[in-house]
Amino acid sequence: MTFLTYLISGISLGSVYAIIALGYTMVYGIAKMLNFAHGDVIMVGAYIAYCVMSYLGLSPIVSVIAAMIVCTLLGIIIERLAYKPLRSAASLAVLITAIGVSYFLQNSALLIWGSATKIFPTVVAGDGVSLFGGQVRITAVALTTILTCVVIMIALTMFIKMTKIGKAMRAVSEDKGAAQLMGINVNGTISVTFAIGSALAAIAGVLLCSAYPNLMPTTGSLPGIKAFTAAVFGGIGSIPGAMLGGILLGIIEIFAKAYISTQLSDAIVFAVLIIVLLVKPTGLLGKQIHEKV
């Protein structure tokens, strides 16, 4: 039964990775850039939620909404100021700018909130669920995380399949130039993508800090890198791939911690990633791109 407990906590951690990975993968699919500042948007979201709950004393729901609004605005501002001028520049230049933005966010957080670790308050109250006569317990946080992830996935898939903006997003990711000729506002579509990705990052930040309540300016870095790995694992640019990659990564991490070694868990996660990429060089659900001569 401990196996099942580990599996559930793995899925729960994986759900957080999946939500973050969605932000990476959507931005990559549309703007063809690795947004290294995404992990730090998570951290900002968590801090905003922390402030709203601790200093203003408002309810967790309000704090999540506030974090989402701030992160959405932040995402749009970052995109407008730092990435938009580089739309036609080399991808490495954009990557370095993203790293600059990441440093900027981390150091701003350091100045605003200080380097001391903040303990994130409980967002999800309740005892959770017991199964098999108390042998397997699912905490309320884990349950909420998994449910949130499922809801986000369904909503996002429907948004992209059914709405006009979603259609525009698919068109832009397929061919920017052709999309523009068809009258799609490419810059607007990219902004919307960043907005959605950042709003998801805010949710992920709150969920992450509910499970691991230590909040620091560097909180977002490692989950950011792992979620990026998850996005690549599933095939970067693919939304179902990001979900699958995130959840698998979470499960592998928890199992590695539980059954092999706590210290080496990250090494094991990355080793699995390498093996997957060697067998399937474009990730689990990624598209094979054929090079034209």
């Binding site: 730092a82 001028p85 580089l86 036609s88 520049a89 080399a90 230049a93 370095i96 700018t97 790293i99 600059g100 933005v101 440093y103 900027f104 150091n107 701003s108 350091l110 100045l111």
Partner: peptide, 20 residues
């Protein structure tokens, strides 16, 4: 470090964007 980050972003924008 904040100034360092800003310098980095500004240099990248100056060197690579049309405006720069």
């Amino acid at each position: 470090m904040l100034v360092y980050a800003i310098v980095l972003i500004v240099v990248m924008l100056m060197a690579n964007s049309a405006g720069g």
